[in-house]
Amino acid sequence: MKKASILMILGALLLMGLFQFPLWNIMLGAPQYPEPLGMNIYIDGIQGMNEFDIQNIDGLNHYIGMKTIPKAIDMWEFEVFPIVIASMSIIGVIIGLFGYFGKVSHHWFLGWLLVITILGVLGMYDFNAWMIDYGTNLDPNAIMKLQNPDGTAMSYKPPLLGHQKLLNFDAYSYPRLGGYLMGAGMFLTFIAYFLGKKSKTINT
């Protein structure tokens, strides 16, 4: 159980990586952008891969009537996410410490994992909803109004995960280091749950 608790603490601490590293990343490459434009999504805001990328993505998006990429103060998520992540990390560490001293059982580890998973899914849902709005809620006076072959208005929603062709752009959407650290942390807590369960079986 001690080993399991240490893993639990480590796993919970890995969430803190999100304060340093981006959670997600979207890259936009095109023939005339051999060096692709890109944005890193942090839990507290969006930053360009290169200094002027956000400005240049906005510049291109104005042709199709997309809104500008939100600043940190424009979205409640960027205020709430850091609080949620920090809280979950601290709670996870506390659970781990309690487990180390035998105050709580390995079920708490699983409970923590379930909560963070639910929060993560909600976060992804929110992220996707924002992208749908961003990609479809377009300025009616846009310079270019493009339609799909079936006559419906073209959407410019970037993919939630993976690659998608948007006009001349190839959009790639993948987790970034902060996201991978979070995933690794969740995996560690899952291992912690199993180790905890196993040690309990041996002890009893």
Binding site: N25, M27, G29, P34, E35, P36, G38, D170, Y172, Y174
Partner: peptide
């Protein structure tokens, strides 16, 4: 980015 790396 992956594509870019591939090109490199």
């Amino acid at each position: 980015m992956i594509k870019y790396k591939f090109q490199l």
